[in-house]
Design a binder for these strands. Structure first.
Lengths: 342, 342
DNA sequence: TGTTAGCACTCTTTTGAACCGAGTGCTAAT
DNA sequence: ATTAGCACTCGGTTCAAAAGAGTGCTAACA
């Protein structure tokens, strides 16, 4: 048996209706609300076929049909007709351009959640911070030295050193020279034990300071790993009864709070190199086990210089894929614009 | 009518029992489980009195009694006997001392949530950043200048300036001198339009740079206002049926995600100058409307130098006050120790 | 041969009645 | 002042019946 044009139309009608109502849809509904002009009986026959083909499912004998994961998948892959309306509103809200990255991301994720009524997340762009650009020690106070470390991508790390005995200007200058001549422009991987030992030796009695500075450098690298993730609208899941029973809600909220697990999503998304930059995970396809009753739509955004991040929208399987994907697309363009204008 | 000793004992028994079970407690239960040696009938009479006095409430005619807000209040104020057990466990977990403030706070709030099974929050200590300690411009790159601003409390702000035309060493030195001589040690309030104009004039063609630096200074102050709050264990509320119906859960989760509303709690707590540093808000007493079905216990912690922050525990009204208050107390001591050892 | 009307059948949801049990309030006895 | 006892209340449970939604199948039809 094959999926002919009429079956497709019926399937589409079933899914559309189910997306709206969240209730199983029966043959009469379809017969009335499509322009196919077929009786409910005919629809019934077709529905039996569609079920056999695996696109729809009956929760129980005397209920209507709901889309299976496979049905959603077909819908997303071939039947979407993006609608652009409503998305325009968002533009205005984002135009109040923000300088601070963190504030921008928080704003984006918030607007997105309000706009879609789903739970949303965004990961801060990952920056490959390989080279040390600049190191400087300055006296802030008697006994307090500020170490500033700048690595590629203008990621800056501050560290305050306590120097009980004080440090005269000359030594400070010498240490600065020492650090800069040896470390400036150096790829981080090349800082090895030998180099560290050499530095410490040259620093003489101030080797502790060099040690602390190197620790701070190490921390910059470490921070690159545990990427920051911002979320919003977690409580939107309560708008969908199929997700808001106690255990499911608890699991989802937990996953959202413990951002750790969301990073799996980010990894997965960044790894995949599809053409559009948008991916849809339906039910069990999701890389996060807790979200097997949800659909997850992710997008990769780029802020120039290869700074890539991930946006994710988590909702019920019957989410409004059209709208979500449309919204994400415009958002991606907007972030692009934002960067270019900078 | 008055609250004599026996009534107090009965009330205490009712509350204790209700804290454990979450079910309305009846007269027979009390008669059996206390050493008062009274029949259920007598207890019934006393309970009727206690209800009239407003300490307990009947959900419906043929149910047992549950404590009213007023009842909880009396219990918390006069009947607690702190038990220290269980709390010891926490010590170990915190001892892996963390240097980064943010990491420490996240760890604390997480341990606390796991330990108590309630939802928890912690606010980063508020620092009065009044004086500028140090300003420095350094060249990082051709065309990129890094401005570092340190204010009291060692709060550090970095800002990268783009200088398309470059800047020779001499000018850089001059600008540094200019900024430091005028701004170093200056209370932030004293930076007024006159001073700004004077600075800009002296900077001549580089007035734009001075402007940007001052903007960055302004931002440090702004950041002091929207204090950071970390949360954990929001999904613990699902462990208490009385909080996990759809609308309540949604509201609570929302409040937790939108940390904005939690700041009201912080303000309130910091304002109050009680002796113990621990406050208990029961039901409607809570400063946050969404939490009127909960109890909120807050503590103020101090990290020396007047850096004060707030810890909050949010749970059902029948929370284990003894344990929570005990835990908070030891935690406060621990944070104290942590600072002193630094 | 595809479509449709009709009907028996299935299964969930709703409704209502009966009943149970927990707990109270009150009265009368101790 | 305390208590035993009893009638009463009211939510929860159970069960059966009815309603409703939807299906599958058959037979008729174009």
């Amino acid at each position: 048996m094959q999926l002919d044009e009429r079956k497709k139309k019926i399937l589409q009608a079933i899914i559309r209706n189910y997306l709206e109502t969240g209730e199983p849809v029966g043959s009469r509904t379809i017969s009335k609300y499509t322009d196919l002009n077929l009786s409910s009986a005919t629809i019934r026959n077709e529905m039996a076929d569609l079920e056999e083909l695996g696109y729809i499912v009956q929760p129980h004998t005397s209920a209507g049909r709901i889309p299976s994961d496979q049905g959603y998948r077909l819908y997303v892959d071939t039947m979407l007709e993006e609608k652009e309306k409503e998305v325009e509103e968002m533009k205005g809200m984002l135009l109040e351009r923000e300088d601070k990255m963190e504030a921008l991301l928080k704003q984006v994720v918030r607007v997105l959640a309000q706009n879609t009524n789903y739970a949303t997340m965004i990961s801060a762009p990952q920056i490959h911070r390989n080279k040390i650009k600049f190191i400087q020690l300055s006296r802030v106070d008697m006994g307090q030295i500020l170490a500033v470390i700048v690595v590629e991508g203008n990621v800056i790390k501050n560290h305050v050193l306590h120097v009980p005995d004080g440090l005269d200007d000359e030594t400070l200058l010498k240490l600065n020279m020492l650090l800069n001549t040896h470390l400036n422009g150096l790829p981080i991987e090349e800082i090895n034990l030998g180099l560290i030992a050499a530095l410490k030796q040259q620093a003489g009695i101030h080797e502790a300071i060099v040690g602390e500075v190197l620790d701070a450098v190490a921390e910059v690298i470490k921070e690159a790993d545990n990427l920051e993730i911002y979320t919003s609208g977690a409580n939107n899941i309560f708008k969908y009864p199929e997700l808001s029973d106690n255990t499911k809600a608890s699991e989802l909220i937990g996953a959202f709070e413990e951002k750790q697990s969301l990073s799996a999503l980010v990894q997965e998304t960044l790894a995949d190199e599809s053409n559009t930059g948008i991916q849809v995970y339906i039910g069990n396809e999701s890389p996060i086990q807790n979200m097997k009753d949800c659909s997850v739509v992710t997008a990769t955004y780029e802020l120039g210089e290869g700074m890539k991040g991930t946006i994710g929208i988590i909702g019920p399987k019957r989410m409004d894929y059209d709208k979500v994907i449309g919204t994400l697309k415009t958002l991606m363009h907007q972030l692009d614009d934002l960067y270019k204008r900078k």
